[in-house]
Design a protein around this nucleic acid. Sequence first.
DNA 1: CACAAAAATCGACCGCGGTCGACTTTTTGC
DNA 2: GCAAAAAGTCGACCGCGGTCGATTTTTGTG
Lengths: 206, 206
Amino acid sequence: MTQTREEKKRQTRKAIIAAAVRLFDLKGFEKTSIEELAKEAGIGKGTIYTYFQTKSEIFYAFCEEQLEFIHEELARKTDPSAPLIEQVMTIFMGEFLHVTRNKEFGRFFMQQVLFPPEGDRNRFAEVDNKWLELLFSIYQKAQQRNELRSDIDLLYLAGHFYALYVVVVSSWYAGRIETEEVAPGMRMLFEQVLEGLAPSPQAISA
Amino acid sequence: MTQTREEKKRQTRKAIIAAAVRLFDLKGFEKTSIEELAKEAGIGKGTIYTYFQTKSEIFYAFCEEQLEFIHEELARKTDPSAPLIEQVMTIFMGEFLHVTRNKEFGRFFMQQVLFPPEGDRNRFAEVDNKWLELLFSIYQKAQQRNELRSDIDLLYLAGHFYALYVVVVSSWYAGRIETEEVAPGMRMLFEQVLEGLAPSPQAISA
DNA sequence: CACAAAAATCGACCGCGGTCGACTTTTTGC
DNA sequence: GCAAAAAGTCGACCGCGGTCGATTTTTGTG
């Protein structure tokens, strides 16, 4: 039966990820060796490479699972009728809290998503798309409510907010801001980008 | 004489960096082994570790040199009387071109600067400060010329522009945009952030 | 059921980054 | 000038990520 083999493979794959979740959480990513991982999953070292090409890929697989869950949760939590800034705060702060729950994971994740190695470009493409869809719908509705300019492409709008999110996370990782400063800092940046950095035209004409 | 020893150490250190520049450029960072590096520098493998604690540190040292040079050049190139957007375009495009001259270097550099490992937090602090000083002076002058709101902290202003720079570089690394799209994309984002993402107040009252 | 093809399993092995302790050179104090 | 201490040099060695080919297990076919 063709079923048996596929089924077993799926189970083994799951076992590896499960082992990874346990050990990465316990000892961290770097300090967990492939051999330990294999042992924990009850297979030989070489067999790991039937399922994942590199150690990073195991981490990616774990991330994908997590992200799918996180994004679903955030989509549920977000109130589509709330003001734009509340919605983006909910989403990005939620993402921040999840991503940085395990500091090492978060760092590696951000590094790989933002500046992926040549081969891994589309690694998170699928998850990213769902993510973008959610944000797009938020921005689009904000445009319709006239909270956002309609002459700016959705992709650019997404870029602006994401950019600020990234620098906030980066500032946290670089130790330039403390955890309590993240939310107020992010909110202030979002407010500022909405209003614009240039003085408002009235102020000039006034 | 105390001089001899220190002098020799300085020379050896330089020799290592010189070897690194040559070999990293030739074969890339990952593909250059410490042993090769040592051989090229004319010393033993273990000796490298008297001068640098990890392979990454050699790269950092190289980066610091480069950055100092780049920032000086950019400071010279920038016309303090030009409109703000021209100045930031000059600076960030200059930075982009230098950072991405060697793709692998640029990736690693961005990853480390934005999301540094726990121990390496202040690795680039010194260079960063000079960098920030240059930008601060630009933003401050723009505030005085009323091109930028004066009620926003310089650090936040810097954050806004830097954030956009980062997402542009990230988009390039992730293959979402081509090299030719970098400059126009960055310019458009800068223009938008200056104007603000929200519709202008007149538009609302109109 | 038989048996060849295909796929999966495995651990010995490789190369690399980094460590360590034995050895050499330089500095210090008298 | 010399002996002890301090600092520098080195390559054998360790552990890890990843490869490979020999072996076992599963699948498709008559």
